[in-house]
Design a protein around this nucleic acid. Structure first.
Length: 211
DNA sequence: CTCTTGATCTTCT
DNA sequence: GAAGATCAAGAGC
């Protein structure tokens, strides 16, 4: 009965199998500006497949880059409900993107998950995405939903119940921040956060010399 | 390496 | 009709 499953190969983090405690709804029922940077280093799994969150962006109802800015629509409805659920939307008619809904009900805000460092179920992710090196498997909001098979059927699902698991980080990492990517409104707000020096980002941070 | 373009769904003007 | 919280492939340097 002593069946040993070897830990998954990981190149920079060597204790990826030791996850922190599950994050529950109360974690998300706070300001997006607190939650977003705290998600860096957390592990996100869908049906056991996923990795370490290395890049996120905060969006809030009060600023025009947010989908919730103009009030509820069929698409953005879940952001106007209770926190701790997924908001999944179709991007450019092609991709899906996933957000974590935050703040007490009544304030529509969410954190866009932009990149993961793959740790769990890497073969499944490669299969879903075609042949890709580990570095680019989840290095963008539309890429990681492909790798984790996230679609609109995950819209509104609780983040603390199957098939989704979010595990807290065990130590606070160094965080980089800067302007959000791919938007044309409220470009001055530095609400993008990332794991400093990570090779798995969608794009390097301005002041973070990589390589 | 950078730049351009096609793919094509939802919302807004 | 146009724009958009994107990506991959191809051209050019």
């Amino acid at each position: 009965m002593t069946k040993h499953t070897p830990p998954p190969a990981s190149d920079t983090v060597n204790s990826v199998t030791r996850l922190g405690k599950r994050l529950n709804r109360s974690f998300f029922a706070r300001s997006v500006h607190e939650v977003a940077p705290e998600l860096i280093g957390a592990t996100m799994l869908v049906d056991g497949v996923g990795g370490i969150i290395v890049e996120v962006e905060a969006y809030h109802q009060s600023e025009p880059a947010a989908h919730s800015y103009r009030g509820p629509t069929p698409r953005t409805m879940v952001m106007f409900g209770p926190p701790g659920v997924a908001y999944v939307y179709r991007s450019y008619g092609i991709h899906w993107c996933i957000n974590f809904v935050c703040e007490p009900e009544g304030s529509a805000a969410a954190v866009l998950i932009r990149a993961l460092q793959p740790t769990h179920g890497i073969p499944a992710m490669r299969r879903r995405r075609g042949l890709h090196d580990e570095r680019t498997l989840c290095s963008g909001p539309g890429k990681l939903t492909g790798a984790l098979a996230i679609t609109n059927r995950h819209n509104g699902l609780a983040l603390d119940a199957p098939p989704i698991e979010i595990h807290a980080r065990r130590e606070a990492p160094e965080i980089a921040s800067g302007p959000r990517i791919g938007i044309t409104k409220a470009v001055e707000l530095p609400w993008r956060y990332g794991l400093k020096g990570s090779r798995f980002l969608s794009k390097a941070f301005p002041d973070d010399k990589l390589r």
